[in-house]
Amino acid sequence: MSEKLVFDAPEIMIDRPTHYCPGCHHGVAHRLVGEVLTEMGLVDDTLCVGSIGCSVFIYNYLDVDAVEAPHGRAPAVATGLKRAHKDKFVFTYQGDGDLASIGLAEIVHAANRGEKISVVFVNNTVYGMTGGQMAPTTLVGQKSTTCPDGRCADEHGQAIRMSEIIGGLGGTAYCERVSLDSVKNIRRAKKALRKAFEMQINGTGFGFVEMLSACPTNWKMDPVSANTRITEEMIPYFPLGVFKDVTKDGEE
């Protein structure tokens, strides 16, 4: 009887345990990026732009060349890298505090300029690394260290929906929101990454994938309940789907 290995860690993933908490979705997001880079044959031509947040050590896990950007500035760093190295595949990997708060200007303008880069946006509705402060993406009613009674719409505004904003910009070629809460959604997330990455390879333009993710530690939940929170609370507010696809425009 011969057997075949049908699932294993992609070779691009460095064989070392991650520093992430149990049930943290950064691990799933890293693996999906690694699988897609591998399947698209991009491993040797990739420049990863890391950001500030729990994923700051992404270069310890993905075996590609990497630059660490100052907080929020990954799209600006990626812009420079891509313009100087047009033959390289350049992507940023950013959390919601990084991308939607301090880095809001950089992401919006990079998308609007139609930079030929790809953005992996991990939205876990908090500042994970610094201990769970409110982020622009924190849901109304959600408790955090800086809104211990829950986010209040009157005082703090509502949670910002980044994919809707990025999808509405002229320079964006592809924009999709996916979720990492189920096997079906994880498969979908991988397809979305591939689509966004293809937009850069084909020279079409800016690609953006938002991944709804769990931060069990700062949500003060066990990993299984945190995963369920994505399904029950996040997806209803942050609808999944494609917000822009220039290769489809005009078809419907």
Binding site: E3, K4, P17, T18, H26, G27, V28
Partner: peptide, 21 residues
């Protein structure tokens, strides 16, 4: 069944799945 679901959702690359050819 070798469906790989467990491996796909595992955040820590723990699981390898084998199927009989």
């Amino acid at each position: 069944t070798g469906c790989t679901s467990c491996a796909l959702i595992c955040p820590d690359l723990v699981i390898k799945v084998y199927r009989e050819e």
